[in-house]
């Protein structure tokens, strides 16, 4: 099964290499990894989607914890959370097809961010289902380029994912 890990790390040089290296070295599969600064400039937050049964993911979390730059790990898979991904799609768009494409864009509440002589570039944000759906709908027109940010996730409500003390995390630290 796929697990969503919220990982806060110190914003030190090499931290991404350390995390990525650990996954490849120990044979863990990353589905996606998104990273960026948090409200604290010294701290970055990674959202890592890993594939594996509970034993594997527990090992992943424990091994991540051994990295000195990793501050906190929460497996939020079983909690209520929102996740989002941003995708840009450059789609082939002959003048005759444009209206139809723009209609799709409206339906998905996406946006057109660039117009070329024969292409439209579309930006869409959403959860995985929505992103997959728009990709599927645009495919018949000819997708020339597609780039995804990878998923970011956050717990719902007052809980703070990075400081959330789930059972899992207690086990780990």
């Amino acid at each position: 099964m796929r697990h969503t890990l919220a990982v806060t790390v110190e914003n030190n040089p090499g931290v991404l290499t350390r995390v990525a290296g650990l996954f490849s070295r120990r044979g863990f599969n990353i589905d996606s990894l998104a990273v960026g600064r948090t409200e604290n400039p010294r701290v970055s937050r990674m959202t890592i989607i890993v594939e594996g049964d509970d034993m594997v993911v527990e090992q992943v979390a424990k091994q991540l914890h051994k990295l000195i730059d990793v501050i906190k790990i929460s497996d939020i898979t079983r909690n209520a959370y929102v996740d989002r991904e941003l995708v840009m799609i450059k789609v082939h768009a002959e003048p005759s097809a444009r209206a139809e494409i723009m209609q799709l864009v409206d339906i998905f509440r996406a946006r057109i961010v660039d117009v070329g002589p024969k292409t439209l570039t579309i930006e869409v944000t959403g959860d995985e289902g929505k992103i997959d759906a728009i990709e599927l709908s645009l495919r018949p027109f000819g997708i020339k380029e597609l780039v995804r940010t990878g998923k970011i996730a956050m717990l719902r409500g007052v809980k703070n994912s990075a400081k959330n003390n789930s059972q899992k995390e207690e086990d780990v630290k």
Binding site: P13, G14, T17, R18, G21, L22, R25, K66, I68
Partner: peptide, 16 residues
Amino acid sequence: ITGITLPITKHSYLVE
């Protein structure tokens, strides 16, 4: 060397 020893050190520093 920090890169080479990444998997075989508990931690490493490049002093800047």
